[in-house]
Amino acid sequence: MSSDFTFIWVAVGALFDPITIAYALAALGLALHFGFTGLLNFGQAGFMTIGGYAFAIGAVKLNVGFFPSLLMAIAGAVLFALLLGIPTLRLRADYLSIVTIGAAEIVRLSVRTPEARPLTGGSDGLNGTGASFFALNPIPDTFSINLGPIHYTNDMVWVRLVGWITVIVAALIIWLLVRSPWGRVIKGIREDEDAVRALGKNAFSYKMQVLIIGGVLAGIGVIFAIMPSSLQPDNYGTQTTFFIWAIMLLGGAATIFGPIVGSMIFWATIAITEGFVSLGVKTGVLPITPVQSGQIRYMLVGLALMLLVIFRPQGIFGKKAEARFNG
């Protein structure tokens, strides 16, 4: 029976998984967008797609190596932010949400069309994007870690190590930004953009900067998720955007640690509920099929989110007073 509880180790592993890193960075970017500036970005998955493909194309199609590919991902996210922001950021807040949700889907559908296959791999996506990154791995082949029954190779450790260092550096940068006068301006924009403009601040420019920075975080983060596995266009649909929103709200929208810890909790919870549900199916406690069990775990996540919104609307790290005055 003991092997059925390996999901505990899977859940522990999920805390530090590359996917968790990708979502932590995307959620941190979204916290800058929404939590600190009030931008309704519903296209964070679009930034991930753009960053992911720009990197992957650089890495496996153009073969330019890791750092130039990384730069391509950053440039892609910046361009995407400009494209979305220039027409919408002067308009009312809701326009950005409509445009971002649409643009993210357009991007996903474009990269997976058969016509784009030579460049993007179509609906199959791209594999082996991490080769040049793993070539930089200084950790010897002989090194590995066992966490319960799970075996972590030197490459698996390397991608997690660099990924989490990136998360820490990003968190530090955002922390410096939001506690500076620059951060005061963006929080002012969140509260009332006109008031900020009346005080002589170029609100449009600040919103553009915020959109770019938050988008770049998503574009960089996704790289850690695709390098050890593969880039699949359908992994970055609207559902992804809503997971990122859930993670951000779970941790606390106007916080720095919230989105990061939120991502860890979210993915660990998914692993645990998945484990429990499949255990229940196997032992016959739950009268459902394995296919249904996939749906059940998202229902459980939904339930957990509902409870969170009811009992702790400010998120895990959010300040209580903020929720009070928001309500």
């Binding site: 006068p181 005061r184 929080k187 002012g188 509260e191 900020v196 601040k201 005055f325 928001n326």
Partner: peptide, 20 residues
């Protein structure tokens, strides 16, 4: 600016702030 402190509201009014 509701969720800014009164002091932060005031500071936002100052011009030519390098940290902005």
């Amino acid at each position: 600016l509701a969720l800014l402190s009164v002091l932060d509201n005031m500071k936002l009014g100052a011009t030519n702030q390098r940290g902005e």
